[in-house]
Design a protein around this nucleic acid. Structure first.
Length: 277
DNA sequence: GCCAATGTTGACGC
DNA sequence: AGCGTCAACATTGG
């Protein structure tokens, strides 16, 4: 369940249950989840205490007492949950952190795409997508002049542009369709043809949408229950995503679902008419 | 059986 | 170099 509002919701949940907890053992049931050598990972963390969990874009950053940081990315279906030590886990639970207080922090991921990597704190920005990650989608970090500058350099369509985390962090397929619908911009419009007004509107909608979805603890679709973040309620407010074939809430035209950059994409052909240039 | 699913990345081409 | 495209990763559900 992983766009930024969902990851932020998970982060808040983790801070309630994992902050200050000492790890006394780790079970790894699927080795590929851990990008480090699994034995080294275990040895480095057993005995350590989780001080806090931070977030950058869709990446969770577990801060440990001994100057270590665990980068955790949930990808498509990763989730965390807590239970009492000794309770059984199913076959999709790949990593279990045993806490000294008699609880387990479990990582579950049906598609096995999620990854964890242990690095020295301060070095995390040198790994994976964090190397090139763009600004957080906030008023302070995501400036209009920056957005317009990179839009004009682009050679592609606006939707894949927004999905690229090096342009702006945090948007995924759901919120991308939503902000384009809100902004009345066709997902296939060339990014470098957006007008000043369109760029301004789109930026404001991105900031607003991510904040509002986070307030609602994110969106839950096609996923399971009982995991952090899955208490999300924002699915009730989605206008475009998952509404293909239904009437546009703004104009009543039938919404269309197409494929853009290999991702399902829903939009209103009337409100979001494609402007060629 | 076929396709699609809240994501990222490495390989390849221009 | 940098950007865009697309297959691959693995599993489940319609």
């Amino acid at each position: 369940m992983p766009e930024m509002p969902e990851v932020e919701t998970v982060r808040r949940g983790l801070n309630e249950i994992a902050d200050g907890q000492q790890i006394i053992g780790i079970d790894v049931n699927y080795g590929k989840t851990i990008e480090n050598d699994v034995e080294g990972f275990r040895e480095a963390l057993v005995g350590q205490t989780i001080e806090h969990v931070d977030r950058r874009g869709k990446y969770l950053l577990f801060r440990f007492s001994n100057h270590l940081t665990m980068i955790s990315h949930l990808r498509m279906e990763g989730s965390y949950f807590k239970q009492k030590t000794g309770m059984p886990v199913d076959k999709h639970t790949h990593v279990i952190f045993h806490f000294k207080n008699g609880t387990d922090l479990c990582y579950r991921d049906t598609r096995k795409f999620g990854r964890m990597r242990l690095v020295t704190t301060g070095e995390e920005m040198n790994y994976g997508g964090l190397r090139t990650i763009g600004p957080e989608p906030t008023e302070q970090d995501f400036k209009l002049d920056y957005f317009e500058r990179i839009l004009h350099k682009s050679r592609g369509k606006i939707k894949p542009f927004l999905l690229n985390q090096s342009h702006v962090a945090g948007l995924g397929n759901i919120y991308c369709d939503e902000v384009l619908w809100m902004s009345k911009i066709n997902p296939e419009q060339a990014a470098n043809t957006l007008t000043h007004e369109q760029a301004k509107t789109l930026r404001e909608n991105i900031i607003k949408e991510i904040a509002t979805a986070t307030e609602h603890k994110g969106t839950t679709v096609h996923t399971y229950k009982n995991a952090f973040g899955d208490a999300g309620g924002f699915q009730d407010y989605l206008k475009a995503y998952d509404h293909g074939g239904e009437k546009c809430p703004r104009c009543g035209t039938k919404m269309v679902k197409i494929k853009v950059a290999q991702r399902g994409t829903t939009y209103c052909p009337h409100c979001q008419e494609l402007i060629e240039k």
